[in-house]
Design a protein around this nucleic acid. Sequence first.
DNA 1: CTGAAAGCGCTAACAA
DNA 2: TTGTTAGCGCTTTCAG
Lengths: 340, 340
Amino acid sequence: MGSSMKDVATLASVSLGTVSNVLNHPELVAPATAARVHRAIRELEFIPNAPARQLRSRHARVLGLVVPDIANPFFTEVARGVEDAALDAGYVVILCNSDAQAEREDRYLAVLESQRVGGILITPARKSLKPLGRLLGNGVAVTLLDNDAPAQDVCSASVDDRMGGALAAEHALDLGHRKIVWLAGPADIPQVADRELGLMSAVRHAGASVQRLAAKQMTTASGEMAMESALSQGIDFTALVCANDLLALGAIRALTRAGLRIPDDISVIGYDDIEFAASAAIPLTSVRQPKYELGHAAAKLVISECEDPASHAHQRVQFQPQLVARQSSSPVSASDTLRR
Amino acid sequence: MGSSMKDVATLASVSLGTVSNVLNHPELVAPATAARVHRAIRELEFIPNAPARQLRSRHARVLGLVVPDIANPFFTEVARGVEDAALDAGYVVILCNSDAQAEREDRYLAVLESQRVGGILITPARKSLKPLGRLLGNGVAVTLLDNDAPAQDVCSASVDDRMGGALAAEHALDLGHRKIVWLAGPADIPQVADRELGLMSAVRHAGASVQRLAAKQMTTASGEMAMESALSQGIDFTALVCANDLLALGAIRALTRAGLRIPDDISVIGYDDIEFAASAAIPLTSVRQPKYELGHAAAKLVISECEDPASHAHQRVQFQPQLVARQSSSPVSASDTLRR
DNA sequence: CTGAAAGCGCTAACAA
DNA sequence: TTGTTAGCGCTTTCAG
């Protein structure tokens, strides 16, 4: 087994408490003593026992990260941001995929509580924050990730989804498109609902209209299916705005299969700007979200609350999205304009 | 704060030890007593303190997962497998991205040691397993992920990369290709080296030959760059086999930009069969690895060692890859055959 | 500035 | 079958 603080104390000929002090309150130990202790630590390759420390100090450098699905490139980027911020602060991240299922989320929340994590970063699977109440009550720092805090008792880091939706709409509008389709996802995802709000209001403002399609999940397969069935029922449009890039990539497949060319026949706009959007065969126009930064900021928020809960003031950080125009969108073609 | 076992004991009018027993050794406590205790547990919403338990029992239901980069879809799938197996067993997974850098890996290994995790799943950043020695010495269960165990003191779960390389080569050969380019990655990645070995031997066996290209990293950007520079120097080939799908996707961009059509002019074969390979504009022929299963199996291996180190026998699990033919590869064209 | 001692929540002997 | 007790490794008063 590894050596303990007692071993270090013995080797350095000091008491246990002094070793603890050089580790946690170096300012109140004499330099000479500290040096001796440090030598002993190196000698014994001593590595502190985090769980034991935690038991006493009720302070764990462990974070729980609860996301719908790490396989979504959006969340893997966010996770990288979280992880880097955590490692910098000496924290460690427990990864939890809720699959957007309340039951799975609850299970994880219980495990995280059992592990006595110091903080939790969560993109909730449902609107209600009830299940977080317990944690909050037990002094766990919670911050909402990619969700705006409704109340005052948690921090949040998010991206302005209304604005993002508007950005996508305005891009299509600026290119002259007036027959627009909005490919949404499940209705209960708040991010998607906000994007839709922003899009609708921009479109209405321009006096244009939108047809709404909904995919079952936020995946390529769902996007493909939704587009395919819409196509088979016959719809007339020149631009397609999607609730995320995965959906867009799937829709493009259906579109291509139906013989439609992109962007000549249909302009496609995605959302998230995942890496594969840029490197797709038809590079995808998309609304970029600062994913890494989002995760990084959220992690710094929880960590700051963990480090000093007393003087912590809850805050809401909101990032701005940005439109990235690529080859999947272009001005509405002359023929389409005439047809209109 | 949450309630403790002592509170439960008091409420159920039993001793602390009995509560511990109903939790850990239910067989040796009377049904009636157990029922009382369980009622108290529910009543108080008691959730055990994992770190405290661990301190005493030296047994942590926590795993460390160390991978080069979770942003690589291959590893995110593997991670899902690990996570699901872990959750089933009541374990929790700490995610660690080494970025394939030894320094970062070491830092994480130290943190994991400090957290006293029960087991570590690792795709090592370097060939040497030295840094794992300490952990092993301290009784941490280690299993190699996507790497074959060289020695006897660890478990491993991997996929037969030699075979995978051969599969890719044979597919190209079967389609009549004789001018093949192999787009490799960094030379020190063992998985890639093995794929190359398999590929080379299959090609040689068929009396054909291969030109070798190397990308700096296993990313789309690197693949694009490598292909672009090779193209600018002029190379004559009809099939491209890539060390992974990311590389292939990048290479396809360069190929397309150079006016080459896929698969008409060039057949492209990837490796990993990530989700985006199937949903790319030109669905990619690829060598499928059972990613989820790999992670799942590896996790079950470590967990079984954690649960019962004494009776644990180290084992090497190896999966078989499988070729998935899609539209990016086709028989060598008549013109090319003639030209030859 | 340093040491001694109490105890965090729990498990594992050992007694009863 | 249940209760009692001694720590696990560490932080934190409180004295010295």
